[in-house]
Design a protein around this nucleic acid. Structure first.
Length: 488
RNA sequence: GGCGGUAUCGUCUAGGGGACUAGGACACGGCCCUCUCAAGGCUGGAACACGGGUUCGAAUCCCGUUACCGCUACCA
């Protein structure tokens, strides 16, 4: 490839489902390549299978890529809109003698295939229609006999230097004369892809390695069409925890699933990038711009990788602390609103408080959903006392009520609502009550009183974020709850 | 079956002839920190699929075997 050529890469999904994590990763590597070396990243929707393609899937692909931040250049290309050109290209091959008409019917073909299988022989089209004499062909065409167009596979070997695998070679004798145009004159996949990739002036075809065996056929088509060959890079597949190709039964496989699970797009991208690529040192957690900087096709893996949701979660936790509070806020607010905990206006009204709260919560959260869960007691006065927390920290209910009463008294006396003073006063109280330096005996029951939960940020941070009024009210509320007859 | 691809801890990977008693990360266990949970720090167990070559020397190169994956449609 001459260095003067501007790289043009494309991501070409079929809109037959949702944007799969494997597809997203393919898109990511294409995108990274373009961002790293310059060039254009194009999107082509391969919607020629009308039976399976849906507009909804197309939208899911756009939404998924947009959420991930993988923006594409130029207008989206819809393969279905190029049928005429595909056909014209196939007919050019017929005209230049590299393809021929085949009058064999599907039924005949199926029969011969079955017969070959019965004899334990591998079936390959025997080229009988290529031996028809021209007069006979003309007669059949004139008679309106239906035909497909087959590509005549030449002698020799077809090979290419794959960007991730190196040299790959296929003996042409193993490839049959494949159909490029159906009886109804619509193109077969390989024909459509090559026609489009040429028209889009694609210089590097980077796709899943399930296309490796399509590649020699496509290369022959390029040559027969007199087009310049692009480079090829075949990326490994993604498998599920059981080592099988990732599919629905492995749980969430659509990018949108992770979006709704509270995963950050940056974390998703980072995780996906590491599945099949490594920067070569021990760097793992990267922001998108770092990935671009570090990206190189040399680091691309040949081996299929297994999708491990545990590591994705960990990665998300890392990105939660990596991104700024402001950016995180943009992601959390919609989730908070959706959970019915607050409104955008309310949050905007106390943005600084919200930012401070986020800083406290994000350390112990792995997903945005975790944050929402933990944020609940800071938004809702309707405290739901966690049964386990009550059982553990409020064992002796009357004694706890009394303890909380003392805590409230102590806190109420504080001249300033300030952490150092709280801690000093509460530790002194622990001392007085005979807990010695085991101030946790106060902190823990108090945590349950304030949040209803056994887990929260540091107790003084909780008190601070809640403020004096709400904190004291919460203690009263807890004391009342403790006095009420237990209704488990 | 034919053809093609792949093969380092359970998982993601570093490694591209000597620096390897094979490094990092996730997960798992222990310890520290500590008001809970996280985070963080320290730490433990855990791998070169097998067999032949080549070489003074192989996780690294070559050849077989095995296993897994993909393709083998008038699907994409």
């Amino acid at each position: 490839m001459s260095s003067s050529v501007v790289p043009r890469l494309r991501f070409a999904p079929s809109p037959t489902g949702y944007l799969h994590v494997g597809g997203a990763r393919t898109a990511l590597f294409n995108w990274l390549y373009v961002k790293k070396y310059g060039g254009q990243f194009l999107l082509r929707i391969e919607d020629t299978d009308k039976a399976r393609s849906t507009d909804e899937s197309t939208r899911a692909i756009f939404d998924g890529l947009t959420w991930l931040g993988l923006d594409w250049d130029e207008d989206v290309v819809y393969q279905g809109a190029n049928l005429e050109r595909h056909r014209a290209d196939a007919e050019r091959l017929l005209a230049n003698g590299t393809a021929y008409r085949c009058f064999c019917t599907q039924a005949e073909l199926a029969e011969r295939r079955a017969a070959a299988e019965a004899n334990k022989e591998s079936f390959k089209y025997d080229r009988r229609c290529d031996r028809l004499d021209p007069a006979e062909i003309a007669r059949r065409v004139a008679a309106g006999m239906p035909y497909t167009v087959r590509f005549r596979v030449p002698e020799g070997t077809t090979s290419w230097d794959d960007l991730v695998h190196g040299e790959i070679a296929f003996p042409n004798k193993d490839i049959e004369d494949f159909i490029i145009l159906r009886t109804d004159a619509t193109p077969i996949y390989n024909m459509a892809v090559v026609s489009d990739d040429i028209a889009m002036r694609i210089t590097l075809v980077m796709r899943g390695d399930d296309h490796i065996s399509n590649t020699p056929k496509q290369i022959m088509l390029y040559r027969a069409l007199g087009a310049e060959l692009p480079q090829f890079a075949h990326l490994p597949m993604i498998h599920g925890l059981d080592g099988k190709k990732l599919s629905k039964r492995h749980g969430a496989t659509a990018v949108g699933d992770y979006q709704h699970l509270g995963i950050l797009p940056g974390a998703m991208l980072n995780f996906l990038a590491l599945l099949g690529w490594s920067p070569g040192n021990d760097v793992e957690v990267m922001a998108l711009d770092q990935m671009v900087e570090l990206f190189s096709p040399d680091g691309l893996q040949k081996k299929a990788a297994i999708f491990d949701p545990k590591k994705l979660e960990w990665m998300n936790g890392q990105h939660l602390s990596l991104i700024g509070a402001a950016e995180l806020l943009d992601r959390v607010v919609p989730a908070l609103v959706r959970a019915g905990l607050s409104t955008e206006a309310e949050i905007a009204g106390r943005r600084d408080w919200m930012l401070a709260l986020l800083d406290l919560l994000k350390v112990r959260a792995r997903t945005i959903d975790d944050i929402v869960r933990q944020a609940t007691p800071f938004f809702s006065e309707d405290i739901a006392y966690d049964a386990d927390a009550e059982a553990k920290q409020w064992k002796d209910r009357p004694a706890t009520a009394e303890l909380l009463g003392s805590v409230k008294e102590t806190l109420a006396l504080l001249p300033a609502w300030e952490p150092a003073a709280m801690e000093e006063a509460l530790r002194a109280l622990a001392e007085r009550l005979g807990f010695g330096d085991k101030a946790g005996k106060i902190f823990q029951p108090l945590r349950v009183a304030l949040t209803g939960l056994g887990v929260s940020p540091g107790i003084f941070e909780v008190l601070t974020m809640l403020g004096r009024e709400r904190s004291l009210a919460r203690i009263d509320q807890a004391v009342a709850h403790l006095a009420a007859p237990a209704r488990s």
